[in-house]
Design a protein around this nucleic acid. Structure first.
Lengths: 360, 360
DNA sequence: CTGAAAGCGCTTACAG
DNA sequence: CTGAAAGCGCTTACAG
């Protein structure tokens, strides 16, 4: 009489042994059902069921096969932060649609803000076939870690040029310049900008040219640069531009930013927010001050999230969902088409109800 | 003279061999740096760098250790779909915040709508330490697969009672009843409901009592039931309630729903949308019809997403981010506190600017 | 259709 | 501080 097997977690081996079959056959039941007789298949499935065996262990399987069928996504911020941005959610939604078609899972990797980076990054241990890096600052340590893993890498938005990576994003500078030209055309001569943090080293309040000109968040830098380009092309002095920096990217920050800007420069007639979420908050802040938009101040955003159109916000439209889909495609076609591809997303200025001629 | 090793991907073993060290020592350099002399550590790290070795292979490591440090999240819909709902994004954000603190990654598993379920579910192969299932219909096959894996399981919203799982969600029925009482108090006697799909088997158009009473999406069922409760407690006949079902959960669907409802029952004075996203669309549809809200029609939502407050929507407020955080906590404390816990989320009716006395 | 065998790359006691 | 050895659970040619 054999001893009854101890009540451990069942494995392929234990199922095989209990049935006096080889593990190869049991494996085939799950992986190549057609290579196995009906009788055996049923036998195995029943035994598995009885033993509470849910099929081959996922991590042993993945280890053995060498493919994770998973794409890792790295965000700038804490995940919990990033997901509050509808633009990021839209991006993720587009990415998910590429992945679903290919049967890929998405692993969200909480990279944490650079300060945390002393510890081993979750990027090191992520079981993935490649990475999509969403908008991280230049020199980000998680990006560095991802690069070392020698897996396909797709960078979204920033940093601008990462060796061995594909890239997808808009031309932030040109897009924002076009928006500023719209404003200048309306007669605006004093422009304020509300930005979320420009650099890894936090700073709140007015940001001078040196500060924003060397920002390691290159998307922010370029958007501001685009406005500066337009202003200077119109012959306006550097003082025509005021930048107010906040730490977070939220409606609250946008509201604070607008207040700060108008408190210190009451002659500002147009406030460009670096993103729609900030602009939504700025709209509310203008109302709090008893200012009518657009009659008293013009306010603009960037991204064109769904709420922007409902709020009538004038903004720069970029294809957010498509951005995610393209990032997914880049990963999927990485082997065939190699790294180094760049996909510039089309943008346009969408004029709605928050911009109007400057009041003088 | 030894042959130079072939240019394969470097491994712990190849690094060890090239340095004439044991693999245990090389492993220690990465896993227990303190157990290793400075000299050896540097030696190994340099050799690894030169060889392009990024550290122990993630999946071999995970296989060996037996812990994935990853939580799997299963959504009802295609992921790409789910992420368009700000309530889901807020939930995920809360979940991410619990996970970040614990150093867990989040694996988003595209479960796909039930029709797809014939194939092997991604749930089977997901390398995770547990699952959070977000609002799936009763009898969902992915949920069944997840249950079989014998891992900690947390169910959010629905289904209602899953054996061996923890649960977190609001009391949908009571919450919606309270909202309906608010409406009845304002004199409304004919109420329309716009719902996204009620059952796995799609159907668009009017949903009769049998349809919604047996809906496998229990959240929808309960919310409708809550309104029916209030109406019947007020002595109103079943015909006081009209339900319009759409397939998707989107602003467009909400707009279509409102139009359909008012086309067929022009005497409806209040439209309850089963969620805020639908309500946002219904608001727009009312405008399209030249109806003033709330003077001509009252419109309500459910969830209280950020945009709801900006739109002035009267709705049921539930703590969305907290819901995610609690789901994360449940997973984290699963071992200690065992399954079967239920956390009922508090809700309240938030009256804003889209409800007013009924026009007669 | 079924099975014996090799081996994926690593970590962990344990011994020295 | 360093190393020899066992083994995690599985899949895949290959042979019969």
């Amino acid at each position: 009489v054999e001893p009854t097997p101890s009540p451990k977690r069942p494995t392929l081996t234990s199922i095989a042994r209990s049935l006096d079959l080889s593990i190869a056959t049991v494996s085939n039941v799950y992986n190549h059902p057609d290579r196995v007789s009906d009788r055996i298949r049923e036998l195995v499935l029943n035994a598995a069921d009885a033993a509470g065996y849910a099929g081959p262990d996922a991590s042993a399987r993945q280890f053995r096969r060498g493919r994770a069928d998973t794409l890792g996504v790295i965000f700038t911020d804490e995940l919990s932060f990033a997901l509050k941005d509808p633009a990021a959610a839209a991006f993720l939604s587009g990415l998910a649609s590429s992945c679903e078609d290919a049967g890929l899972n998405l692993l969200l990797i909480p990279a944490g803000p650079p300060p945390h980076a002393a510890k081993v990054s979750a990027v090191t241990n992520a079981i993935v076939d490649g990475f999509v890096v969403y908008s991280v600052p230049e020199g980000d340590p998680h990006l560095g870690t991802a690069m070392k893993r020698n897996l396909p890498l797709v960078v979204v938005d920033e940093p601008d040029s990462v060796e061995g990576a594909d890239w997808v994003g808009p031309d932030d500078r040109a897009a924002m310049r076009e928006l500023a030209e719209h404003l200048i055309g309306l007669g605006h001569r004093r422009v304020g900008i509300v930005s979320s943090r420009l650099d890894v080293v936090a700073q709140t309040g007015p940001a001078d040219r040196t500060r924003w000109g060397t920002a390691r968040y290159s998307v922010m830098r370029k958007r501001i640069q685009g406005i500066a380009d337009a202003l200077s092309a119109a012959g306006l002095p550097p003082s025509a531009l005021q930048v107010e920096e906040r730490f977070s990217y939220s409606a609250e920050a946008g509201a604070e930013g607008l207040h700060a800007l108008l408190d210190r420069s009451p002659d500002i007639t147009a406030v460009c927010c670096i993103g729609d979420v900030l602009a939504i908050g700025a709209l509310r802040a203008a109302e709090e001050r008893g200012l009518r938009v657009p009659d008293d101040v013009s306010i603009t955003g960037f991204d064109d999230i769904p709420e922007a159109s409902r709020a009538g916000l004038t903004t720069v439209t970029q294809p957010l969902v498509e951005k995610g889909a393209i990032a997914g495609e880049f990963f999927l076609t990485h082997a065939a088409e190699g790294p180094g591809r760049r996909h510039m997303l089309p943008t346009h200025v969408t004029v709605r109800r928050t911009t109007a001629p400057a009041r003088h």
